[in-house]
Lab assay of single mutants.
Amino acid sequence: MDSLVVLVLCLSCLLLLSLWRQSSGRGKLPPGPTPLPVIGNILQIGIKDISKSLTNLSKVYGPVFTLYFGLKPIVVLHGYEAVKEALIDLGEEFSGRGIFPLAERANRGFGIVFSNGKKWKEIRRFSLMTLRNFGMGKRSIEDRVQEEARCLVEELRKTKASPCDPTFILGCAPCNVICSIIFHKRFDYKDQQFLNLMEKLNENIKILSSPWIQICNNFSPIIDYFPGTHNKLLKNVAFMKSYILEKVKEHQESMDMNNPQDFIDCFLMKMEKEKHNQPSEFTIESLENTAVDLFGAGTETTSTTLRYALLLLLKHPEVTAKVQEEIERVIGRNRSPCMQDRSHMPYTDAVVHEVQRYIDLLPTSLPHAVTCDIKFRNYLIPKGTTILISLTSVLHDNKEFPNPEMFDPHHFLDEGGNFKKSKYFMPFSAGKRICVGEALAGMELFLFLTSILQNFNLKSLVDPKNLDTTPVVNGFASVPPFYQLCFIPV
């Protein structure tokens, strides 16, 4: 009986604490739906499609509103004006990374994606500088992407125009580009180590996009005490870190300090320079996690976009025909596509942009946080508050993009057929937390897609009208449904 009384008292205290925290903070924060004790607004949000729920709530509470995930307040920004004001106009104040408990377990605050403060700034600055020195957006990395595009075309030829699921092959190409940047090595598509790495990356994007992960991140005790797919994700990350550590040891034994070959060499050189400046942010643990982040951000996002792009091109054969006509006119058949071609191919450029806009790969991006107490639109948001960005509300804005739910390359073309930029184009987020590999991803999408369409016609196994382009999961990332196609050599 005594234990029951204690339990009831504990629960009562928890409920009172929950109510007090919510009521004391709500006077400062933007308005929002009334949260339930302990669980907050979790029942009012469709976990399978958070973005749709945010759109519905914005119609009631406006472009800036507050939700509670458990006891934790989260300020939501919906629509271009609110997102721009926060991420661009007040970029420094909104540059923090929001709480992501599962990532905390995986990387302990290291790396480039989930770190904060001085650690994040130094690692991000170093990573950007190193990638630029190796030619991100310049010639040397373009050579690597072109080489991988040629290998991709050869792998597709091996399908002999038979029906195939493109998931694996389209994942190999961007993964190999990242391998060449980090390890100075590309792998054969049949290499077992490479296959294991690909498998872990593919599993992780599916797990991260599941409703279960949303629950884990908002009720963090689940991570330590409950079984579930989150444990598989943590094991996959541990596998990748151990693999990278092996490569780091190989580099330490063979590195030429006067001739760095890749990202690992550059990081080890930085560690050597910083060894007298303790404590340094440049450690082996930081290198492991930064490399894992580059793999995660640079492989599955690009391969998922490529997979979605081919599905949309199957669905819209008239678009595919126009792209192939432009390829034939500008590039021809006797040389590989290059980035200089893009400025002469406005329709193809528009298609690449429209694919990214339409699929809305990361509907709410990753959570941000404010780095200080900030007054925002007459609300006071306390330091450390998590900020949720609705990228969907920007990419699918119906004023900027008429009929935003329709796939239409003319969203990025003017009346004369010239490519038209849009400030609403934010597939990689915006501001200080914009994806480090934005330029690389854009290069890969253009070169891989043009190389495929230069060499193959795409054949659907069903009537294009019957192809479903609805994402199968739409949590962290929008993942396309399973499909097969035939690559018919031109």
Rank of each mutant, 00 (worst) to 15 (best):
I169P: 06
Q261L: 14
F134K: 15
T450C: 12
K275M: 03
F376G: 02
F428E: 05
I182Q: 01
T302E: 03
K52G: 12
S95D: 06
N204P: 04
F168L: 15
D2E: 12
T283Y: 05
G62E: 00
I123G: 05
N218D: 10
R335A: 06
R105T: 06
H353K: 03
D265T: 07
E285S: 12
L461V: 09
G417L: 10
L306P: 00
D262I: 01
K235D: 14
G171L: 12
K72G: 03
I42V: 15
I207R: 06
P464G: 06
S209W: 05
Y243W: 14
V248E: 01
I205F: 14
G111T: 03
H276E: 08
D2G: 10
N133C: 13
L361P: 03
V60S: 12
K232V: 13
F419C: 09
P317H: 09
S24G: 03
P35F: 02
V370N: 05
M339L: 13
F295P: 01
I222R: 07
L395H: 10
N258K: 15
S254L: 08
L458N: 00
N455M: 05
V76Q: 01
V394Q: 10
F168S: 15
C216K: 06
K59R: 11
V330H: 11
L391V: 06
T299I: 12
E104D: 09
F110N: 14
R150N: 08
K432G: 11
F487W: 04
K432T: 14
M129H: 04
G296F: 15
F126M: 08
N455A: 10
F226C: 13
I359R: 04
F428V: 04
S336R: 11
L467A: 02
T450M: 02
I205G: 12
S365T: 10
F239L: 11
K270G: 06
G27F: 13
E438S: 11
P489H: 03
L29D: 02
H316P: 00
Y68S: 05
D373G: 04
L43I: 12
P363G: 08
V248L: 12
G137R: 13
E274V: 06
L447N: 03
T305L: 09
T305H: 05
L90T: 06
P480R: 03
N202W: 09
R186T: 04
S242R: 14
Q22D: 13
K28A: 15
G437T: 07
N418S: 13
W20F: 15
W20L: 10
L15K: 03
I45T: 13
Q44G: 09
G109T: 14
S280C: 10
R186E: 02
D414P: 02
P317C: 02
Q214D: 05
H368L: 05
H396E: 08
C338K: 14
R329T: 09
M426R: 05
F69R: 07
A149N: 01
D143E: 11
N56T: 14
P221W: 11
K273P: 05
C151T: 11
T304P: 02
V319N: 03
T304V: 12
Y424L: 12
P427D: 06
D165A: 02
L447C: 09
Y68C: 06
D463M: 07
L57Q: 07
L90Y: 14
V473E: 10
P480H: 02
D256K: 09
G137A: 10
N107K: 07
